[in-house]
């Protein structure tokens, strides 16, 4: 579709580079000095148990929260502490873990909001009178504005067709009437409509059954094949292993491992975080032996 086509995974500097990110809430350190980078065209996954700081890190990158320390560079500029709208304008779009669709807006309007930053004809880039010109153009609606809106509506249908017939037949229904899985899909469609240079996906398959999860895996794979740069939070490890160029493992607010999926699977620190020491309590049950498995169990 319309994503930037740039297949070369490693260029000189990373597209996104966060260094030393820290965020504390009271006595709890949610993110305790994380470094993280994503190169153009890469798909990087962030994994780790609930509460490891994944979503907090996403909030810091997308500007919803401000780091107590650390720097975030995106496409060469420091974006740490910038407003969410400023970061969106820089080319980052995200989805939310619990699904934040606009409940009273139709699916089509939800996705069109994603393209808000791309409106040109109706939002002339004039200083001071820009907002008033926008109001006037919205009310008068000259041909250029109507053409822009029509183009975007076509594009919305195109994006929604990515999800087969999950969303297209419901395009005019309000988002509050959708199932949980469909809300997640609307969020991804909305993010794609922004044509972001970097797409942040926060657990896109949460609440999905195996069939739906497999479907989502294919969709993300196709986005990656088109050259879309993606930073993914996910718990379903087989999905992570199949999709990722690189995996970053967080635990307790810190990065405990990073590397190719295969390398991470066999990293002792990761296995410990996921599977424990196997020495909990005085008398562990017999089944405990299973945790001595040398790699994270992932079935293909």
């Amino acid at each position: 579709m319309n994503a930037p086509v740039n297949a070369s995974p490693i260029t000189t500097a990373p597209l996104l580079e966060a260094t030393g990110l820290v965020r504390r809430f009271g006595g709890v350190t949610a993110v305790g000095g994380i470094d993280l980078s994503v190169f153009e065209g890469e798909l990087v996954s962030v994994i780790g148990p609930n509460g490891a700081g994944k979503t907090t890190a996403f909030n810091l990158i997308s500007g919803l929260d401000k780091p107590d320390a650390g720097a975030i560079r995106f496409a060469g500029a420091n974006i740490a502490g910038r407003s969410p709208e400023g970061i969106a304008a820089a080319g980052i779009a995200r989805t939310f873990q619990h699904g934040r669709v606009f409940a009273n807006l139709s699916i089509a309007d939800n996705v069109l909001i994603g393209a808000h930053g791309r409106l040109r004809a109706v939002r002339p880039d004039w200083p001071i009178i820009g907002p008033l010109a926008e109001l006037a153009l919205a009310l008068v609606r000259p041909a250029s504005v109507r053409a822009e809106e029509a183009t975007l509506r076509d594009e919305v249908s195109e994006i929604l067709s990515l999800f087969g017939d999950r969303l297209l037949p419901r395009i005019d229904q309000p988002a509050h009437s959708l199932s949980y899985a469909n809300r997640r899909r609307v969020e991804i469609a909305r993010a794609l409509a922004a044509r972001p240079r970097l797409l942040l996906l926060d657990e896109p398959t949460a609440g999905m059954n195996p069939t739906e999860t497999a479907e989502m895996l294919e969709i993300i794979a196709s986005l990656k094949a088109r050259g879309q740069t993606i930073l993914l939070i996910e718990h379903k490890l087989d999905m992570v292993m199949r999709l990722s160029d690189r995996v970053i493992v967080l635990d307790d607010g810190r990065k405990i491992a990073e590397g190719k999926p295969q390398a991470v699977r066999t990293d002792p620190a990761v296995i410990e975080a996921y599977l424990g020491h196997g020495n909990i309590g005085a008398a562990a049950p017999a089944g405990n032996a299973a945790t001595a498995a040398p790699t994270l169990p992932v079935t293909a």
């Binding site: 997308s62 919803l64 407003s83 709208e85 969106a88 009273n104 807006l105 309007d109 909001i113 808000h116």
Partner: peptide
């Protein structure tokens, strides 16, 4: 209406 429904999500899309 997007600002009304969820201003956080709206800002994340440049509004």
């Amino acid at each position: 209406r997007a600002v009304r429904d969820d201003d956080v999500a709206a800002r994340s899309f440049g509004i």
